[in-house]
Protein backbone atom coordinates (compact mmCIF):
# COMPACT_ATOMS: atom_id res chain seq x y z
CA UNK A 1 0.00 0.00 0.00
CA UNK A 2 0.74 3.66 0.42
CA UNK A 3 3.44 4.88 2.75
CA UNK A 4 2.06 6.16 6.00
CA UNK A 5 2.77 9.79 6.59
CA UNK A 6 1.49 12.43 8.86
CA UNK A 7 -0.89 14.82 7.14
CA UNK A 8 1.22 17.94 7.55
CA UNK A 9 4.28 16.25 6.06
CA UNK A 10 2.19 14.88 3.24
CA UNK A 11 0.88 18.37 2.46
CA UNK A 12 4.36 19.87 2.68
CA UNK A 13 5.55 17.29 0.20
CA UNK A 14 2.91 18.66 -2.16
CA UNK A 15 3.24 22.42 -1.69
CA UNK A 16 6.49 23.03 0.18
CA UNK A 17 6.24 26.21 2.25
CA UNK A 18 3.64 27.77 0.01
CA UNK A 19 -0.11 27.93 0.51
CA UNK A 20 -2.09 24.75 0.03
CA UNK A 21 -3.57 24.19 -3.41
CA UNK A 22 -6.09 21.94 -5.10
CA UNK A 23 -3.81 18.89 -4.87
CA UNK A 24 -3.44 19.47 -1.16
CA UNK A 25 -7.22 19.74 -0.81
CA UNK A 26 -7.61 16.44 -2.61
CA UNK A 27 -5.10 14.87 -0.25
CA UNK A 28 -7.13 16.05 2.74
CA UNK A 29 -10.30 14.80 1.14
CA UNK A 30 -8.73 11.39 0.69
CA UNK A 31 -7.71 11.20 4.33
CA UNK A 32 -11.24 12.01 5.46
CA UNK A 33 -12.85 9.53 3.09
CA UNK A 34 -10.51 6.78 4.20
CA UNK A 35 -11.44 7.50 7.80
CA UNK A 36 -15.13 6.78 6.99
CA UNK A 37 -16.17 10.40 7.43
CA UNK A 38 -18.36 9.93 4.35
CA UNK A 39 -18.82 12.06 1.25
CA UNK A 40 -21.35 14.53 2.62
CA UNK A 41 -19.54 15.39 5.83
CA UNK A 42 -16.22 15.43 3.98
CA UNK A 43 -17.55 17.91 1.44
CA UNK A 44 -18.86 20.13 4.19
CA UNK A 45 -15.49 20.14 5.93
CA UNK A 46 -13.64 20.80 2.67
CA UNK A 47 -16.00 23.62 1.73
CA UNK A 48 -15.36 25.34 5.04
CA UNK A 49 -11.65 25.01 4.45
CA UNK A 50 -11.93 26.42 0.94
CA UNK A 51 -13.95 29.33 2.20
CA UNK A 52 -11.22 30.04 4.69
CA UNK A 53 -8.60 29.78 1.94
CA UNK A 54 -10.37 32.46 -0.03
CA UNK A 55 -10.02 34.79 2.93
CA UNK A 56 -6.33 34.21 3.49
CA UNK A 57 -3.46 32.07 2.18
CA UNK A 58 -2.96 28.97 4.30
CA UNK A 59 0.33 27.12 4.59
CA UNK A 60 0.00 23.42 5.55
CA UNK A 61 0.33 23.99 9.32
CA UNK A 62 -2.38 26.63 9.32
CA UNK A 63 -4.68 24.58 7.12
CA UNK A 64 -4.38 21.51 9.31
CA UNK A 65 -4.89 23.59 12.42
CA UNK A 66 -8.06 25.04 10.98
CA UNK A 67 -9.20 21.60 9.86
CA UNK A 68 -8.74 20.17 13.33
CA UNK A 69 -10.60 23.09 14.87
CA UNK A 70 -13.51 22.55 12.51
CA UNK A 71 -13.70 18.87 13.27
CA UNK A 72 -13.45 19.32 17.01
CA UNK A 73 -16.25 21.81 16.83
CA UNK A 74 -18.42 19.33 14.95
CA UNK A 75 -17.79 16.77 17.68
CA UNK A 76 -18.49 19.00 20.64
CA UNK A 77 -22.09 18.83 21.71
CA UNK A 78 -23.39 19.93 25.09
CA UNK A 79 -21.63 19.46 28.39
CA UNK A 80 -18.53 17.30 28.01
CA UNK A 81 -18.69 15.92 31.53
CA UNK A 82 -20.90 12.91 31.81
CA UNK A 83 -21.66 10.81 34.88
CA UNK A 84 -24.67 9.32 36.65
CA UNK A 85 -26.31 11.66 39.17
CA UNK A 86 -25.71 10.74 42.81
CA UNK A 87 -28.43 9.67 45.24
CA UNK A 88 -31.06 8.97 42.66
CA UNK A 89 -31.86 6.35 40.06
CA UNK A 90 -30.15 6.62 36.69
CA UNK A 91 -31.15 4.16 33.99
CA UNK A 92 -28.75 3.72 31.08
CA UNK A 93 -30.29 1.82 28.21
CA UNK A 94 -27.56 0.37 25.97
CA UNK A 95 -28.59 -0.30 22.37
CA UNK A 96 -27.07 -1.02 18.96
CA UNK A 97 -26.69 -3.40 16.06
CA UNK A 98 -25.41 -6.95 16.45
CA UNK A 99 -21.89 -7.40 17.74
CA UNK A 100 -21.18 -3.69 18.27
CA UNK A 101 -19.88 -4.21 21.82
CA UNK A 102 -22.90 -3.50 24.04
CA UNK A 103 -22.43 -6.27 26.57
CA UNK A 104 -18.70 -5.68 26.93
CA UNK A 105 -19.23 -1.95 27.34
CA UNK A 106 -21.75 -2.54 30.10
CA UNK A 107 -19.13 -4.57 31.94
CA UNK A 108 -16.66 -1.71 31.59
CA UNK A 109 -19.11 0.99 32.68
CA UNK A 110 -20.24 -1.10 35.66
CA UNK A 111 -16.61 -1.45 36.69
CA UNK A 112 -15.95 2.29 36.56
CA UNK A 113 -19.23 3.19 38.30
CA UNK A 114 -18.73 0.60 41.02
CA UNK A 115 -15.22 1.92 41.57
CA UNK A 116 -16.61 5.44 41.92
CA UNK A 117 -18.94 4.30 44.68
CA UNK A 118 -22.25 4.14 42.80
CA UNK A 119 -24.73 1.46 43.74
CA UNK A 120 -25.11 -0.45 40.48
CA UNK A 121 -27.31 -3.11 38.95
CA UNK A 122 -27.38 -4.71 35.51
CA UNK A 123 -30.46 -5.94 33.62
CA UNK A 124 -29.98 -8.80 31.16
CA UNK A 125 -32.57 -7.86 28.56
CA UNK A 126 -30.91 -9.73 25.70
CA UNK A 127 -33.03 -12.83 26.01
CA UNK A 128 -32.42 -13.86 22.41
CA UNK A 129 -28.77 -14.48 21.59
CA UNK A 130 -27.18 -17.80 22.54
CA UNK A 131 -25.38 -17.46 25.91
CA UNK A 132 -25.95 -13.69 26.07
CA UNK A 133 -26.95 -13.90 29.74
CA UNK A 134 -23.95 -16.08 30.62
CA UNK A 135 -21.66 -13.57 28.91
CA UNK A 136 -23.18 -10.65 30.81
CA UNK A 137 -22.95 -12.55 34.11
CA UNK A 138 -19.20 -12.98 33.61
CA UNK A 139 -18.92 -9.21 33.14
CA UNK A 140 -21.11 -8.63 36.20
CA UNK A 141 -18.78 -10.80 38.26
CA UNK A 142 -15.70 -9.01 36.96
CA UNK A 143 -17.19 -5.64 37.90
CA UNK A 144 -18.71 -6.92 41.14
CA UNK A 145 -22.22 -5.93 40.08
CA UNK A 146 -25.31 -8.10 40.32
CA UNK A 147 -27.15 -9.09 37.14
CA UNK A 148 -30.94 -9.39 37.04
CA UNK A 149 -31.96 -12.04 34.52
CA UNK A 150 -34.86 -14.26 33.67
CA UNK A 151 -33.81 -17.91 33.76
CA UNK A 152 -36.09 -18.93 30.86
CA UNK A 153 -34.96 -18.82 27.20
CA UNK A 154 -36.63 -16.46 24.73
CA UNK A 155 -38.55 -14.64 27.44
CA UNK A 156 -39.92 -11.14 27.01
CA UNK A 157 -37.08 -8.64 27.41
CA UNK A 158 -39.53 -5.98 28.54
CA UNK A 159 -40.45 -8.18 31.50
CA UNK A 160 -36.80 -8.39 32.53
CA UNK A 161 -36.51 -4.61 32.36
CA UNK A 162 -39.67 -4.27 34.43
CA UNK A 163 -38.27 -6.61 37.13
CA UNK A 164 -34.93 -4.82 37.12
CA UNK A 165 -36.49 -1.38 37.52
CA UNK A 166 -38.54 -2.68 40.48
CA UNK A 167 -35.43 -4.20 42.04
CA UNK A 168 -33.44 -1.00 41.48
CA UNK A 169 -36.12 1.10 43.15
CA UNK A 170 -36.43 -1.29 46.11
CA UNK A 171 -32.67 -1.32 46.69
CA UNK A 172 -31.92 2.33 46.20
CA UNK A 173 -29.78 1.58 43.15
CA UNK A 174 -28.12 4.63 41.59
CA UNK A 175 -27.16 3.19 38.20
CA UNK A 176 -29.16 0.54 36.38
CA UNK A 177 -27.47 -0.60 33.17
CA UNK A 178 -29.78 -2.33 30.69
CA UNK A 179 -28.21 -4.69 28.14
CA UNK A 180 -30.33 -5.28 25.05
CA UNK A 181 -30.11 -7.72 22.15
CA UNK A 182 -28.31 -6.57 19.04
CA UNK A 183 -30.72 -5.57 16.29
CA UNK A 184 -30.41 -4.19 12.80
CA UNK A 185 -32.28 -0.92 12.49
CA UNK A 186 -34.35 -2.04 9.51
CA UNK A 187 -36.10 -4.77 11.55
CA UNK A 188 -39.41 -3.15 12.36
CA UNK A 189 -40.56 -5.62 15.00
CA UNK A 190 -37.25 -5.55 16.86
CA UNK A 191 -37.21 -1.75 16.88
CA UNK A 192 -40.76 -1.78 18.17
CA UNK A 193 -39.63 -4.15 20.95
CA UNK A 194 -36.95 -1.62 21.86
CA UNK A 195 -39.43 1.24 21.88
CA UNK A 196 -41.54 -0.82 24.27
CA UNK A 197 -38.56 -1.29 26.60
CA UNK A 198 -38.01 2.45 26.58
CA UNK A 199 -41.68 3.09 27.35
CA UNK A 200 -41.56 0.74 30.31
CA UNK A 201 -38.54 2.51 31.75
CA UNK A 202 -40.18 5.93 31.31
CA UNK A 203 -43.42 4.74 32.83
CA UNK A 204 -42.11 2.66 35.74
CA UNK A 205 -39.25 4.93 36.69
CA UNK A 206 -40.53 8.49 36.08
CA UNK A 207 -38.21 9.73 38.83
CA UNK A 208 -35.11 8.36 37.09
CA UNK A 209 -32.59 10.11 34.84
CA UNK A 210 -32.68 8.03 31.68
CA UNK A 211 -29.89 7.88 29.11
CA UNK A 212 -30.22 5.83 25.94
CA UNK A 213 -26.77 5.23 24.49
CA UNK A 214 -26.06 3.86 21.03
CA UNK A 215 -23.04 1.58 20.88
CA UNK A 216 -21.34 2.14 17.55
CA UNK A 217 -18.49 -0.03 16.27
CA UNK A 218 -15.73 2.25 14.93
CA UNK A 219 -15.09 -0.13 12.03
CA UNK A 220 -18.58 0.54 10.67
CA UNK A 221 -19.00 2.57 7.54
CA UNK A 222 -21.77 4.81 6.29
CA UNK A 223 -24.52 2.59 7.70
CA UNK A 224 -23.62 3.99 11.12
CA UNK A 225 -25.52 7.17 10.38
CA UNK A 226 -28.63 5.21 9.50
CA UNK A 227 -28.23 3.30 12.76
CA UNK A 228 -28.15 6.52 14.74
CA UNK A 229 -31.20 7.90 12.92
CA UNK A 230 -33.43 4.89 13.48
CA UNK A 231 -32.28 4.04 17.01
CA UNK A 232 -32.75 7.67 17.98
CA UNK A 233 -36.41 7.37 17.24
CA UNK A 234 -37.07 3.99 18.86
CA UNK A 235 -34.97 4.42 22.01
CA UNK A 236 -34.87 8.23 22.27
CA UNK A 237 -31.09 8.27 22.10
CA UNK A 238 -29.18 10.78 24.19
CA UNK A 239 -25.65 9.79 23.24
CA UNK A 240 -23.20 7.49 21.50
CA UNK A 241 -20.44 5.15 22.67
CA UNK A 242 -17.76 4.45 20.09
CA UNK A 243 -16.14 1.01 20.50
CA UNK A 244 -13.16 -0.79 19.00
CA UNK A 245 -11.09 2.36 18.61
CA UNK A 246 -8.06 0.20 19.38
CA UNK A 247 -8.44 -1.04 15.79
CA UNK A 248 -6.92 0.80 12.83
CA UNK A 249 -10.36 2.11 11.88
CA UNK A 250 -10.89 5.79 12.62
CA UNK A 251 -14.62 5.88 13.29
CA UNK A 252 -15.13 8.91 11.05
CA UNK A 253 -18.85 8.26 10.74
CA UNK A 254 -19.07 9.71 14.26
CA UNK A 255 -18.53 13.13 12.69
CA UNK A 256 -21.55 12.72 10.46
CA UNK A 257 -23.59 11.52 13.42
CA UNK A 258 -22.70 14.36 15.76
CA UNK A 259 -23.26 16.87 13.01
CA UNK A 260 -26.55 15.58 11.69
CA UNK A 261 -28.05 14.13 14.86
CA UNK A 262 -26.54 16.39 17.51
CA UNK A 263 -25.81 13.40 19.67
CA UNK A 264 -22.76 13.67 21.92
CA UNK A 265 -20.20 10.89 22.05
CA UNK A 266 -19.87 9.89 25.68
CA UNK A 267 -17.30 7.11 25.88
CA UNK A 268 -14.90 5.23 23.73
CA UNK A 269 -14.00 1.56 23.96
CA UNK A 270 -10.38 0.73 23.20
CA UNK A 271 -9.93 -2.93 24.00
CA UNK A 272 -11.61 -6.04 25.34
CA UNK A 273 -10.56 -5.61 28.96
CA UNK A 274 -12.44 -4.30 31.98
CA UNK A 275 -10.36 -1.12 32.04
CA UNK A 276 -10.61 -0.29 28.36
CA UNK A 277 -13.22 2.47 28.58
CA UNK A 278 -12.44 6.16 28.38
CA UNK A 279 -14.40 9.39 28.29
CA UNK A 280 -14.59 10.79 24.79
CA UNK A 281 -12.09 13.47 23.92
CA UNK A 282 -12.65 15.33 20.66
CA UNK A 283 -8.99 16.38 20.74
CA UNK A 284 -7.66 12.81 20.86
CA UNK A 285 -10.23 11.61 18.38
CA UNK A 286 -9.34 14.21 15.75
CA UNK A 287 -5.58 13.77 16.29
CA UNK A 288 -5.96 10.01 15.78
CA UNK A 289 -8.17 10.46 12.75
CA UNK A 290 -5.60 12.63 11.00
CA UNK A 291 -2.46 11.07 12.45
CA UNK A 292 -1.42 8.51 9.89
CA UNK A 293 -3.17 6.79 7.09
Amino acid sequence: GKTRLNLINQLKALVGRGPIDQDAIEEIEMVLLQADVGIDATERIIQALQKRMREEVLPPEEAVKYLKQQMRQMLTIGDPTFAPQRDRLNVWLIVGVNGAGKTTTIGKIAHVAQGSGYKCLIAAADTFRAAAVEQLKVWGERAGVEVIANPGQNTDPAAVVFDAVMAAQARGTELLLVDTAGRLQNKKNLMEELAKIRRIIDKKAPEATVEALLVLDATQGQNGLRQAQVFAEAAKLSGVILTKLDSTAKGGIALAITQQMHLPIRFIGAGEGLEDLRPFSSYEFVEALLSEY
Binding site: L33, Q34, A35, D36, V97, G99, D217, T219, Q220, G221, Q222, N223, G224, S247, T248, A249, G252, I253
Partner: peptide, 10 residues
Amino acid sequence: DAMIGQEAAN
Protein backbone atom coordinates in the same frame (compact mmCIF):
# COMPACT_ATOMS: atom_id res chain seq x y z
CA ASP B 1 -19.55 -7.67 8.89
CA ALA B 2 -21.24 -6.28 5.76
CA MET B 3 -21.62 -2.88 7.46
CA ILE B 4 -17.84 -2.43 7.68
CA GLY B 5 -16.37 0.74 6.21
CA GLN B 6 -13.02 1.56 4.61
CA GLU B 7 -11.31 -0.86 7.01
CA ALA B 8 -12.45 -3.84 4.92
CA ALA B 9 -9.44 -3.51 2.64
CA ASN B 10 -6.80 -3.29 5.40
